[in-house]
């Protein structure tokens, strides 16, 4: 080897290529601890069982099958608990030496974040499929066609992306492994004060106002209409606006945090 030779590696980082390599890496993490997917699905499935078989009989306000009514909200809870693992995986990289190794290499600056975000999308999709299968076994039926199912999948993917970019922020800034997932509890709780479990009409004034105007209600109603095979209407646009709005703000904050901490 000649002394002081120039590097043989190309100088330019290719964000798509580097993201794909890092996506493959963190998907391997998920595959080697599949319990994270199961754990993500366990709490929502337990809620599904509890509300359908224990409380369901007493909930007279809902017409038709309660499992049909409940599933959309349960799917959102699944996502909210799944993204905690994304925050945790990112925190592990940032608190160890790996982030410094990657930053000193000629790779795309945000490839690490995109690798984790896309992993979150795949892992959450797996958990969602698990929850839907359990719901089907419990009697969930949908008259939705292929297009409506695709629309549901697209909306859930958008919700996952938006919430994942929120999860990136504590993943980058948390001081301890215990503190990293605390942010997800309010997100898991949010569907309770919405139309996810019971119609908002029976709630007292201020609570009803909040429930009707927070994002979960419009998203849940949209998914419910899509599953029922009826026209979605304005709720769909409101749901999309919420998702894109949260996505844009969370992405900007997460990228800003990343640039500030890791230039």
């Amino acid at each position: 080897m000649s002394v002081g030779s120039e590097a043989k590696t190309p100088v330019s980082g290719n964000l798509a290529h580097d993201t794909a390599v890092l996506l493959q890496r963190s998907l391997r993490h998920v595959l080697r601890s599949p319990d994270t997917i199961v754990t993500t699905a366990v709490t929502p499935i337990a809620m599904l069982l509890l509300f359908v078989y224990v409380f369901g009989g007493a909930l007279k306000a809902v017409d038709g099958s309660y499992v049909d009514y409940l599933l959309p909200g349960i799917l959102l809870i699944t996502i909210a608990s799944g993204i905690a693992y994304t925050a945790f995986r990112l925190f592990t990289d940032v608190s160890g030496g790996i982030v410094d190794r990657l930053r000193s290499m000629p790779i795309g600056r945000s490839a690490l974040l995109w690798g984790h975000v896309l992993t979150s999308l795949v892992a959450n999709l797996a958990s969602l499929v698990l929850v839907v299968l359990v719901a089907l076994a419990m009697g969930f039926r949908s008259g939705a066609g292929v297009l409506a199912w695709l629309a549901v999948a697209g909306l859930l993917a958008l919700v996952t992306l938006a919430l994942t970019w929120i999860a990136v922020i504590p993943g980058l800034t948390a001081k301890s492994a215990d503190g990293v997932s605390g942010f997800s509890y309010p997100l898991i709780f949010l569907p309770f004060v919405s139309s996810a479990f019971v119609p908002t009409a029976g709630m007292p004034g201020p609570v009803r106002w909040f429930a009707q105007h927070q994002p979960v209600t419009s998203i849940v109603n949209t998914i419910r209409d899509l599953y029922a095979g009826i026209p979605v209407g304005d709720q769909g646009w409101i749901a999309l606006a919420w998702c894109f709005g949260v996505l844009v703000v969370a992405y900007a904050l997460a990228m800003g945090t990343y640039r500030r901490k890791f230039g």
Partner: peptide
């Protein structure tokens, strides 16, 4: 960055991957 490598104070290896996978990760990047 294209001319250096840094072995930092804290070992920067991926615990979940095998040794071979760690090396291949860097090679691909």
């Amino acid at each position: 960055r294209a001319s250096i490598s840094l072995t930092g104070q804290f070992t920067a290896v991926d615990e979940v991957l095998t040794g071979r996978e760690n090396l291949m990760l860097v090679a691909r990047l």
